[in-house]
Design a protein around this nucleic acid. Structure first.
Lengths: 250, 250
DNA sequence: CGGGCCCTTGAATTCTCTCAAACAATGTGG
DNA sequence: CCACATTGTTTGAGAGAATTCAAGGGCCCG
């Protein structure tokens, strides 16, 4: 039951909340004008809402303005694999726009504000603004790279390393968007979400996380994650976040 | 040690070996002319060659004309995760072109023939041929979708189901490219490749595959895979290949 | 004939899962 | 304000899955 886009328009593109963040690239005046025209509205999705359902044909494309969401796929036996999390600046629904049917679902983890575009107008964007078209491909390619990394993690790392990797990954993504306060981050995930991302059972995930907590490497209580010993966490994960690069968005 | 592109040009674009295959879309005359001009040569990569190395900055972009390759990432401890296989029509090196450094490697599994493009000329393609730019994004999005599926598999399916899924996946991709003969397919993978794709040990992969063979569901000997009981294989995998859709390529 | 590559099998070990139960925090209605 | 449901976290114990170690066999090629 995807929610319907509302005509609400709290944020005209000139005052896009993403503009302020240094992680994101600036638009030229031309681009801004076009994007502003490309945007058809805003959608408020409450926590727990399904934004896209696997198997559906959705005519919209969204950019996350605020809040947390996650992409996932389900197996018939009820098992769920979380593929990635969607944060401010992330585009969701592109696969459906290009390939037809959505092959994954997207659910809001917290209340979210989404910027709405019509997928039928994507070709127009490609025709008139090659630079923006390039950005769309960039975003797609970046998502692919993240999936490569996740697959490596789920396929080859130990449970402990996987957990460490995921926490570092989430933290660094949130950090780029200015969602962190120093070493801590308030985030809406439960251990079940972590388990479903890592491909581990809830029980085992809990034990693995507790080991990290008891080792004073992280602390995670009441939705608040704190990276206590980053160096150690990086060692355990065998992975370090990349340096920030300027990121496009539409 | 990536091989160097040779000036060889056995296949002018008008006679591209991919043109004949019904799985691929046709170019318009304009597009064909541009692509022909975009292509800077051909590269023959022998089986076992590293085409891209993780961490390198490569200035080329390739489209596979023939042969098999695979994308993978390594962990420091030597473990390898195969991310996907590259067959005729697949584009490789796009991530490097857009994001800078290659974050994965690509190795030739059999001898391969690759079509070579300069990545610096990608912006020109976007400016002059929005339709081709759209196709590039399509290919990227398709790769993302495949990774979603693999991640679901590695994260949530049992070893048996994972193996069944992978065989079906590979078979159907090969089938679209006309590489199969009825129910069989000659392919250059070893069980080690399968193991590294599934995130399983070689020993366990062997046992799982043998169970499929003994159940007369598949047979795999001397590089020749045969889908003996497709219905059963689909049941075990809990997955069925999508119907073929026309696929773009550059 | 020897070496290299790949497949196969056995046995012991380790990791992760499932089942089961309890606890903490929060919110709701009476 | 208390009883009770709900959601999320924690722990124990036994079962099951997959790993590692070890070794042997088949096949091809120089």
């Amino acid at each position: 039951m995807p929610a319907n886009p509302t005509p609400t328009r709290r944020y005209p593109c000139e005052k896009c909340p993403l503009q302020g963040l240094e992680a994101f690239r600036e638009f030229t005046a031309d681009e801004l004008e076009f994007v502003s025209h490309f945007k058809t509205g805003e959608l408020v999705a409450e926590a727990g809402t399904t934004i896209f359902a696997e198997g559906s044909h959705n005519s919209h494309l969204y950019t996350v303005l605020s809040g947390w969401g996650f992409r996932f796929k389900m197996l018939e036996n009820g098992r769920r694999q979380i593929l990635n999390f969607a944060l401010a600046g992330d585009m969701i629904g592109l696969q459906g726009s290009l390939l037809g049917e959505m092959q994954h679902s997207v659910e809001a983890l917290s209340d979210m504000l989404l910027c709405v575009f019509e997928r039928t107008r994507l070709p127009e964007l490609y025709r008139r603004f090659p630079s923006l078209a390039f950005d769309v491909t960039w975003l797609c390619s970046k998502e692919e790279q993240i999936l490569d990394e996740h697959l490596l993690s789920v396929g080859q790392r130990s449970a402990q390393a996987r957990a460490a990797y995921l926490l570092l990954f989430i933290f660094s993504r949130a950090e780029m968007r200015g969602l962190t306060q120093g070493k801590s981050l308030t985030m809406p995930l439960t251990q079940q979400h972590v388990a479903d991302t890592l491909g581990l059972s809830l029980v085992h995930t809990n034990r693995v996380l507790n080991r990290l907590s008891r080792g004073r490497i992280i602390s995670w209580q009441n939705r608040r994650l704190q990276i206590v010993n980053r160096k150690r966490l990086v060692e355990i994960a065998g992975w370090e976040p990349q340096h920030r690069t300027e990121r496009p968005y539409i």
